[in-house]
Design a protein around this nucleic acid. Structure first.
Lengths: 228, 228
DNA sequence: GCGCTAAATTCTGTATACAGTATTCTTGAA
DNA sequence: TTCAAGAATACTGTATACAGAATTTAGCGC
């Protein structure tokens, strides 16, 4: 059987890398969860999802196990997998860990990043500003994530990027909800400006402070939309 | 087929919890990797390991995917799974992240832990001291881990415990190697004494400093045994 | 003897089949 | 009408089967 998983965006043909089916399913399922097509608490019916994706249960189950380890679904014995749902406390916990990680990353980044690396973040930042001005929320959101991941990557610590990425993935679903108003959005953009300035000045303390504040405000923006 | 996975220690019958096969395999495989029965770089032959554990390939493969997400094995397309191997840089990276996490946890623990919780850590500490005096390295090692995990748990942040546990698991294999001499061991014990004192005094800065130093020294102890 | 090519084998990737457990539906009685 | 018990159904857990890729081995030419 030729399994065809429709991709949201066509993969550029530069990647010849042969990717196995379960890998593709992991990506697909993860997106479905993050984008809310599989809301929290949903029981994942292997037969149904498998049919929907055009794959058999075997690779699908493998993908589910992978996502379980990532913390996106929960495995209930004899009852399959359920999309994990987070309460406000859990989200706050995750944000605090992310803050800790980003502050460490920022400090390191000021020490070890090359000017070229920082320039790359600046490019993303400028692009994001353009999206802000044109009101492109989705692209803004994606670039925002890319900037945060990018700063973490500047620290040159694979384990750090690893765990940060994992937590960010778990939170993506939440942040999607936060449709902040224009004034809060403007605030966030201003913070990013400061962030860039501190990074380019290689001022670890200032960058750390801003990153911390930024995540506190991110929490303020979403907390009211969450169940206790 | 009745799949019998020999457990290292007989599970106490208090646990009626029905655990699925792939779950049991995850635990078993993880132990095999941590304890060095599957050294880094080993290609995991599904047929062979499956026969060895007395299970079919299906749940075994699911377990492998889970461990891949945990970062203990690496998935190579069309070539199965390989036990991940870490270089010195990667180990140092992990230790630095763990340090960051433990310092944050320690600070929080000083604020939110109950006296009873701290008492529990004290019990573990005393038990560990007994193992030190009697020279029981293996048990000492396990209690050491339990204390660090315990302090992290005191912070009451599930996401924090999650990522800390994950990194600690990845490192377990490494720490197993570090057979430090008696003087270094004595040092480590002394640090733990300070740690307990700071925790019981609920002094976040002191605790944070000691935790940081402790992990730096842990790195000193193992770094020479690693390939670059 | 050494290296290259091709067949053979081994192993992974995926699908399907079957057994056992949870869930739902139906039927009957209070 | 509501609840309970049991049958029917659906779904998960595990094993097996088959196709295709990777690796090994054998044979051949140099």
């Amino acid at each position: 059987m030729v399994a065809v998983i429709p991709q949201p965006s066509p993969v550029p043909s530069t990647r010849i890398e042969r990717q196995s089916l379960h890998d593709a399913i992991v990506t697909r399922l993860r997106d479905m969860i993050i984008e809310g097509h599989l809301p929290p608490g949903t029981r994942i019916n292997e037969g149904q999802i498998g049919a929907q994706l055009g794959v058999s249960r075997t690779p699908l189950r493998e993908a589910i196990k992978y996502l379980a380890s990532e913390g996106l679904v929960e495995l209930v014995p004899s009852r399959g997998a359920v999309v994990k749902s987070f309460g406000a406390k859990e989200v706050l916990d995750m944000i605090e860990v992310i803050r800790t990680l980003e502050q460490f990353a920022g400090t390191r980044a000021c020490q070890v990043a090359t000017n070229q690396d920082i320039g790359h973040i600046r490019d993303l930042h400028d692009e994001m500003l353009a999206c802000y001005r044109s009101g492109d929320r989705l692209q803004y959101y994606k670039l925002n994530q890319a900037i945060h991941s990018g700063i973490v990557a500047l620290a040159g610590n694979a384990a750090l990027s690893d765990v940060h990425g994992m937590l960010q993935t778990r939170l993506k679903r939440i942040r999607f909800i936060g449709h902040e108003g224009p004034e809060k959005w403007a605030n966030a953009v201003a913070e990013h400006e400061e962030m860039m300035a501190a990074l380019e000045a290689r001022d670890p303390d200032r960058l750390s402070a801003i990153l911390g504040r930024h995540l506190t405000l991110a929490w303020e923006r979403v907390k009211d939309d969450l169940q206790p």
